[in-house]
Design a binder for these strands. Sequence first.
DNA 1: TGTACATCAGTGAACGCGCGTTCACTGATGTAC
DNA 2: TGTACATCAGTGAACGCGCGTTCACTGATGTAC
Lengths: 239, 239
Amino acid sequence: METAPAAPPTRRERLRAETTREIKSVALRLMAEGGPDAISLRAIAREMGMTAGAIYGYFDTRDTLVTALIQDVYGDLVDTVEAARDRCAPDDTAGRITAWGTALRAWSLAHPEGFRLVYGDAVHGYQPPEGGAAADAAERACAGLTGLVAAAWPTAKEFHDGDYTWADFSDHLCEVLRRDHPELPPAAAALGMRVWGRMHGLVALEVYGHTGPLTRDPGRLYEDELKSMVRELGLNPAA
Amino acid sequence: METAPAAPPTRRERLRAETTREIKSVALRLMAEGGPDAISLRAIAREMGMTAGAIYGYFDTRDTLVTALIQDVYGDLVDTVEAARDRCAPDDTAGRITAWGTALRAWSLAHPEGFRLVYGDAVHGYQPPEGGAAADAAERACAGLTGLVAAAWPTAKEFHDGDYTWADFSDHLCEVLRRDHPELPPAAAALGMRVWGRMHGLVALEVYGHTGPLTRDPGRLYEDELKSMVRELGLNPAA
DNA sequence: TGTACATCAGTGAACGCGCGTTCACTGATGTAC
DNA sequence: TGTACATCAGTGAACGCGCGTTCACTGATGTAC
């Protein structure tokens, strides 16, 4: 399919894109300030000095806007953790896993409302579209984790040789794995999800304020959890 | 302080208690059916065939009702996991930990709306009272987990001798630990919280629908995670 | 057993609120000749 | 360069909704004599 040669955006198009961006950024700011319930078309419009109806020039519906927000936020999260991972040497698997996990927590604490948007049920009455709100970002996250597990697999496999089958996983996940890492057995997919869960647990508790009343140093706790996880992958948590 | 000898409840008192219970159970049912947003005084009243105003005879405010719901639900959760734990022999530490974790997941999947109520931000605009919504249940949960870790400590300590101080934890947690398990070092408190996080992670992802699209057998995954955790505590995951 | 009074659960109407969404419109920005 | 027309962003008023909360009230249930 041939697309027309990309014409430079007209002034109108630029303004339009600008306003679209502003709507989303105001929505995120409102959410950061007043909790997720503060995302309302009227509140956003108020904040921007326009009329609620005007937003319908940019988004068909409130849920469309929320979906766009989730995509942006999730994308930002994945950008962040990928960047942190890539600041480690490609062969420093333990470091890369730790960096991913550490960045995940840091991002989540810096954007608690974003975390809720992506991993919780932040928005009153929101119905995600078919296929999920942010399939792209979710797939990137999944691929990233899988890559980490793949790198650790040579040392991890001796501890994690459960008798999983490809039938235990969704077709889509199988495809992705077979494409990116044809050498991995299904047990590695399981391990990837467990690693994900392990990173998610303490962070979710912390974001939702459950660890706060118990410890003064949740970061320390999380670091230790990561270390212990890395060790369980047969790696040496150097740093 | 002496209390009056408990008079048997009058008919009116019984009816009152009955209605109070019904309000809460209808609220829970509505939440189970229509998501947490379905908790509204008007919806509850509608369902019970009464007027919205009538509920104010039982609860001062919507948030009071929500707090009561959280207490009930959290209490039910703790009852469930404690009962599961106690179905194992007192000296079967691995079994007791596994039973706790397994029951936690089973309860959460059976009551996803309850899980969101306790661990998420389920209710639009709800402000928990000072000290948290369900301090009692939270403390029971904490005590239960601490007990499990205490039982595992003799074997676990060799892997978890981090240099924690009591100052790393809240005064309240320190008190509880020193009271119930004076033999434990602060590192055990850290381990308890990590165990909590580890159980929480996969369950939260599953309840919020994140693991569903990836695996067909999340229970298996979770079992393996528990096994690996038990092993990391120096125990033998027998069953 | 019967009457007079107090308690109290529940009614129903009203309050003000903010919400998502629609629609006929105005007025500015761009385009064609 | 100037005029006529098309596009389109944004207005403002209105719609109907469900919400939490209040309040004067009715009518049934209990209590005291």
